[in-house]
Amino acid sequence: MQIAKVCGTVVSTQKDPSLTGVKFLLLQLLDEQGNPLPEYEVAADTVGAGVDEWVLVSRGSAARQVSGSESRPLDALVIGIIDTVSLDNRLFYSKRDSDR
């Protein structure tokens, strides 16, 4: 899994039929300190994440282990919305603080 920040949405009206109704998000990957990496990724969203939220992303074959995704051609899947992140007993992200 990796931490990422939701930067936007991706809309695709023409896609594989197994992806009908699936919401796609544009994510910017973050390093272990919460700094943005130069990489972006598109991921399917199963948890209803929104722009500017930090999320957990499952990638590769693990993205297809979630119920309902087994037969979908997914490389990345948002599997959680992050509430807090701490490192070395220091809180460096809190969803509550970022909403203000």
Rank of each mutant, 00 (worst) to 15 (best):
S67G: 04
E41M: 12
I79C: 14
D45K: 01
S58F: 01
D88H: 07
R72S: 06
I81N: 09
L30N: 00
S98M: 09
R96T: 09
T9Y: 07
Q2V: 07
G48F: 10
Q33D: 15
A76W: 13
S67Q: 07
L27P: 01
Y40F: 14
S58N: 02
C7G: 11
L74N: 02
L26F: 02
S67C: 04
R96F: 14
Y40E: 12
L26A: 04
A76H: 13
L26T: 01
I79K: 03
V11A: 13
D83P: 06
L91D: 10
E41N: 03
P36D: 15
A76S: 14
A76R: 12
V57P: 00
L87F: 06
S61M: 11
D52R: 05
G68I: 03
I79Y: 03
V22L: 15
Y93L: 12
D45P: 01
M1D: 15
V66L: 12
S94C: 12
S18C: 05
R64Y: 13
Q2P: 08
Q28G: 05
D75A: 11
G34D: 09
L27Q: 02
D99W: 05
P36T: 11
E53N: 06
I82P: 02
E32L: 11
D97S: 08
P36C: 07
E39D: 14
S98R: 15
P73M: 05
V85T: 08
S12H: 10
V42C: 14
F24K: 05
L29Y: 06
P38I: 07
I79L: 08
V22S: 04
D31W: 01
P17W: 04
S12E: 11
I79G: 02
G21E: 03
V42F: 13
K23L: 04
P73Q: 07
V78I: 13
V57A: 00
A49Q: 04
G68S: 08
L56F: 09
E41D: 07
K95S: 15
R59F: 04
A63L: 05
S94A: 11
